[in-house]
Design a protein around this nucleic acid. Sequence first.
DNA 1: CTCTCATGTGCACGCCGCATACATCCTAAG
DNA 2: CTTAGGATGTATGCGGCGTGCACATGAGAG
Lengths: 203, 203
Amino acid sequence: MPPTGTYHHGDLRAACLRAARELLEEDGSAGLSLRAVARRAGVSATAPYRHYADRDALVSAVAAEGYRELAGHLAGAHPAPATPDELAAVAVAYVRFALDHPALFRAMFAEPCDPTSEERVAATAAISEYVRGIVRAAFPGSDAEALSTTIWALVHGLAFLHLDGKLDSSTPEAVAAQVTTAVHALFQASPAFRTAAATRTAD
Amino acid sequence: MPPTGTYHHGDLRAACLRAARELLEEDGSAGLSLRAVARRAGVSATAPYRHYADRDALVSAVAAEGYRELAGHLAGAHPAPATPDELAAVAVAYVRFALDHPALFRAMFAEPCDPTSEERVAATAAISEYVRGIVRAAFPGSDAEALSTTIWALVHGLAFLHLDGKLDSSTPEAVAAQVTTAVHALFQASPAFRTAAATRTAD
DNA sequence: CTCTCATGTGCACGCCGCATACATCCTAAG
DNA sequence: CTTAGGATGTATGCGGCGTGCACATGAGAG
């Protein structure tokens, strides 16, 4: 292992990340403490501080990893969605990811956390750009910025409401059906964004 | 003061709630500790336990209050929205509430919190029913359930993305314009929900 | 071989949630 | 009026947490 440090522990940085992920999945965000991470990594309580400035930095690192996984998951649902159906599949994958990794998803989005975490902003910018790119490709004439923001918000909101148990998440099929319906509806409205863009240009 | 206890402190229950709200606004959810609440209320550290089973119970109470305030805020934007414009105004009020009370909004929605808090579920059910009622009145022929869920998710998602700084929240006008555009687009798609309802009924 | 610096340890401090035992004081029954 | 009882708040203590600081350790440079 040439790149990252291989001193006493081997690769404590990665070990902490892995331990944090595990704790998050097992005990929720409440169980994610620096000390618990250290214990799980078989290391003293303060050792992680050599790799993460504070608890927030660790959480941010986990969140950033989550963003990358989410991106992969979306790409796995469909590499280059173009039709509304394909886009809906990606949307379903988004919500599914949130439901499959609730604590991680919350760490990614629901934490106060100052926006001063390069890793985080870069990762979220990547997702944002990803969505925009899809929309641009699928709806060339539309105001991609506005439409992609809207669809992201819609899907994101669905994910959160499901997470909070405010929607029927009893079966994966129910979730998928609802998300699909909503996304299709929004795409049926895509001319509105085209109009908006045209209007703006005409001003 | 006949209803709630007026013993030693006067009304510690309400005082705790108020203190918690203040701490939330000042220091964010991180600063909301039972001990801090007790200090602010001028009472011993464990006194709040006489009125709240644990920290979660207090937070839930604050959240429930937040739900009521949100409902009032929405009603203040428009008492009985019927046109898309009026509905968009309510949506803007929703997002504005989130941006004006970020920590409270997060406490309301972004906390893990078991769903075993009557006060909370009642309050969120009220909001959900409120939105559904509006949609039913404004779009009589549509599948109110599906359409209201979708619009709630859209607005909720916009609120969260703005909260997380993922959207341009620099000016209130920018936020309002974006929310308005998105909501209008969705309403233009409302026939899709009508179709969905009709299809389902026809089955 | 030694110097040096990254890496990990030990310890201490103050904060936290919460359990338990105790003090206080309203309220109501006799 | 007295007194028993229960509601309310206090005192104390336990274990856990984040984190700053001094110290030990060991890998690689000279």
